[in-house]
């Protein structure tokens, strides 16, 4: 891997983390003193992706124009890594007319047709849609790929299994990405899943299945690169399960009393660990650490300002867009 790649992977992870950290701050900022999930400038459920940056960054580093992603309810990292405009995405989270969806979608339902990016808040249900996108790419003879992202909890849904089978039987250019963050809200994977790895399940459909341990961005980068190349070459689907980390709660406001691994969470944070590795290898120098963080902060700050300055949709606009 060349030094440029490494620096890019690091920079993108920091950019996403900075984004999630600021959203976290803004989200909670005006919900005090009595915490009300529906109050504030960013209302509603909020599922932040801190800790899971390696999956998004390692995968999206291989994508090009026309490649599609279906993301789940925790979508920000994949959206940003895939090039979704930060201003429009943030404005959507703030429910403004300038948002990706003019304030109709919110943070779990981000749609960016320009980048072929979409989310679904229903577990595993983005998988079949990604298969259809891959089917369209294949029918049109492009070498584009569709990336279907979901968590390990999603792999117990029928939609997951139907999709793997469809993709295999139709040899679709799709890469299934499972972000195994160990927790399906409060249920650990060992209580929900009859196999140690969803790579096993891929094998059941004749699809190559890989598990990437340690939440390692370079390992994801390599595995995803191989899977994407394979799909582009017409060799069919692959599955990559990334053992990642949910650094924060399932949603903001989740006290995580059920969680038995909280003590070690901070030491497993992939970003400081990667920074240390790059500093040690000389791919990153101290001054850059600060510069990268500041650049990310400035970008996020501008996106938040853009959102705050954007109009709030008129109530009657709720009646628009049911049909084309």
């Amino acid at each position: 891997m060349n030094p440029m790649n490494r620096l890019e992977l690091y920079t993108e992870m920091v950019r996403i983390r900075q984004y999630e950290s600021r959203i976290l701050q803004e989200y909670h900022g005006d919900k005090a003193p009595a915490w009300d999930i529906g109050a504030g400038l960013i209302p509603g459920e909020m599922h932040l992706s801190a800790g899971q940056e390696p999956a998004a960054v390692g995968v999206c580093a291989h994508l090009k124009k026309g490649d599609a992603i279906t993301a789940p309810h925790r979508p920000h990292h994949f959206a940003l890594a895939h090039g979704v405009d930060m201003n429009a995405m943030t404005a959507e989270i703030y429910g403004r007319t300038t948002g990706l969806c003019k304030g109709k979608g919110g943070h779990m339902h981000l749609f960016d047709p320009e980048n072929h990016f979409s989310c679904s808040g229903i577990i595993a249900q983005g998988y079949p849609v990604a298969c259809g996108q891959a089917l369209a790419m294949k029918r049109r003879g492009t070498d584009n790929v569709a990336i279907a992202v979901a968590g390990e909890g999603a792999a117990n849904q029928g939609a997951f299994h139907e999709s793997l089978n469809l993709a295999a039987v139709w040899n679709l250019p799709v890469v299934f990405v499972i972000e195994d963050n160990d927790w399906a809200i409060s249920v650990p994977r060992s209580d929900s899943t009859a196999t140690t790895s969803n790579a096993d399940r891929a094998a059941g459909y004749g699809i190559p299945g890989v598990r990437v341990e340690n939440n390692d961005v370079e390992a994801v980068f390599e595995a995803a690169g191989a899977a994407v190349d394979r799909a582009r070459a017409g060799e069919g689907p692959s599955l990559i399960e990334v053992h990642t980390l949910r650094l924060w709660g399932h949603f903001e406001g989740d006290a995580q009393a059920y969680r038995t691994d909280l003590e070690t969470v901070d030491e497993r944070d992939p970003i400081p660990r990667y920074a240390q590795a790059l500093l040690a290898s000389g791919d990153l120098v101290e001054e850059q650490v600060q510069q990268i963080a500041e650049a990310a902060d400035a970008e996020v700050d501008a996106a938040i300002q853009f959102s705050l300055n954007s109009p709030i949709p008129a109530a009657e606009d709720a009646l628009l867009h049911v049909f084309a």
Partner: peptide, 18 residues
């Protein structure tokens, strides 16, 4: 965790399931 690394994709590594 054995038999699940990237060689399922970059090579023809087989699967040994749970």
């Amino acid at each position: 965790a054995s038999a699940r690394d990237i060689r399922r994709i970059v090579a023809d590594g087989g699967s040994v399931t749970t």
